[in-house]
Amino acid sequence: MSEPACAHAREGARPVPYRGGGFAPRPRRWAGAAFLAGLIAFWEMCSRLGWISPLALPAPSEALAALRDLAQSGLLAKHLGASLGRLAQGWTLGVLAGIAAGLAAGLFSLARAGILPLVAALFPIPKIALLPLFIIWFGIGEESKVATILFGTFFPMTIAVYGGVDNVDRTLIRMGQSFGLSRLSIIRKIVLPGAMPAILSGMRISASIAIILLVAAEMIGAEYGVGAYILLAGNLMATDQLVAGVMILSAMGLTVSWLLGMAERRLLRWRA
């Protein structure tokens, strides 16, 4: 105890106990990457020491070797290209349709009355259960897979955008009206930017859902695609290839998350 604190302690005084702090996580730039690297190193060590049977789970180095073989055979580009194409199409269309439906539900009473019950009824259906239907409607080709992703991303996006529009400060909208802005201007300049945080978080959620649906759709009927690659590896019990496929998916998820993070920093600079 320091000198003055000692003096006070003699009169029965003590410092007020500290009980604040915490509940404020801050970004730590390299902590995430370091944690991931540490985990993979630990896994590698366990495999090398024989604590994990290679039959149960291949070492990361083996999976990486499988990945390198895949890249050298030129198949990686084919699988990845097919998957990314479907993902981009389905997700973009789903997000755009979701923004339109969410805006309509957020702005117009009639649209709200129509869209909200529809979303409540259809959102919980696993879209992959509908894939056979989509195959009947759109054929076994790309369209049915894109449609699965589109439907899967449409609903969460609609809900996010609708909630975001509902939360736009009404006094800002009154302000726009009081300055004689047109309806379209109010939507474009006040409602959309005000709902942007919700739109971006909806894009985050729907991107993950899109990747899940992509793999599921590719497992049902595709020649190329990461999902098809993983399915084949599983059927052959080639666990190193299977883990390599899973790694590709994780990398896709990380990339999407990184891109959206950049978009958030750019578009939401005003929040800080």
């Binding site: 006094t171 800002l172 009154r174 302000m175 726009g176 300055f179 047109s182 300049k189 006040i190 005003w270």
Partner: peptide, 24 residues
């Protein structure tokens, strides 16, 4: 109007907020 809670668009600069009233 001049509002009690200012009603400025948080994503627009000072000049942008003033310009908003003139844009339509």
């Amino acid at each position: 109007y001049i509002f009690q809670d200012f009603a400025l668009l948080p994503w627009r600069s000072v000049a942008g907020n003033v310009a908003l009233a003139l844009e339509d």
